[in-house]
Each structure stands twice: as C-alpha cells, then as structure tokens.
C-alpha cells in the first residue's frame, strides 16, 4: 500500500533543476509527480516516477545523492472536499503529515495526493477504515 518516492538533493544553483529533468527525459523516465522543498542554498526534489529502479541507477551513475522514501498515494474522490476528508482522518488519529502534494493520473478526472507521514502502517489502517486506502506501487503503475 505504499509507493516509492525518490528524493534528490539539488543545489540551489541555476540549471540544477533543468539538468535533472533533462537526465530523466534522456533516459525515457516519466516523472509523474514532482515537488520541491527549498531552504537557503539547497533543495530536496521529490518525485514519483514510472520506474523507480531505472531512475535509481540513472541517478546513481550521474552522481546524484538521493533517497528512496516510502510514501502514501491516496486516490482523491472527484468531489469537493476530497482532500479535506483524508487530512481529517489523519488529523483525528494524531498522525502528523510531514509534507503533501498532489498529482493527476493519466485517466481523466483522477487525482492522487502524496503523503509523507511518520507511521505508514498506522496511516494506512485508519485511511482504509475510512475508505481512502492508499494505492500500491503496482496499482499506480497500471494507471500510468
């Protein structure tokens, strides 16, 4: 029920983002979702890709520092307040969300929210109880 996200260290320098995305493009890696956290002089680029294994070897060969992090990808109901429901469920169970970002699937009208929480197991359990079960890597891959 978890999805592997790749977090890459990037310098806060002109072109560091574009050279990373170029590298992905050149290796036919599809970045399905991406978000960046930045401080003064560096950033963490987090992405969901179509092929985690291929991406790791490409990044490794290119000398990037990165980590593979298990995150939750919860499909959002296509209705108002869909995201709110997910956050409420987690909040009510005392589960802290470290960061969050959303992306749309290739299927029209479908969207996911990526969540990084302290305790994946606990979060999966409470989300499932509220019919918001996070998808697995395989389910997400089918959807790409």
């Amino acid at each position: 029920m978890i999805v592997n996200q790749i977090s890459v260290f990037i310098e806060n320098a002109p072109g560091s983002m574009s050279s990373l995305t170029r590298l992905m493009r050149e290796n036919d890696i599809n970045i399905r979702a991406l978000c960046i956290a930045e401080v003064n002089n560096f950033g963490i680029l987090r992405m969901i890709v179509n092929d985690v294994y291929a991406t790791s070897s490409v990044l490794k060969n290119a000398g990037y520092v990165f980590k593979i992090t298990p995150v939750l990808a919860v499909p959002l109901k296509d209705e108002a307040g869909g995201l709110g429901v997910v956050l409420d469920v987690l909040g009510d169970s005392g589960i802290n969300v470290e960061y969050i970002y959303a992306f749309t699937a290739s299927q029209k009208g479908k969207a996911y929210v990526v969540l990084r929480v302290e305790d994946n197991e606990k979060a999966i359990k409470v989300l499932a109880e509220h019919h918001c079960t996070p998808v697995s890597q395989a389910e997400l891959d089918i959807d790409s």
Binding site: S7, A37, V65
Partner: peptide, 10 residues
C-alpha cells in the same frame, strides 16, 4: 553532500 548525510526530511 553525501548519501549518508542526506535525508528525505528537510
């Protein structure tokens, strides 16, 4: 930066 010192958590 090194792999050891890097983390997904800012």
């Amino acid at each position: 930066m090194t792999s050891e010192m890097f983390s997904d958590s800012m």
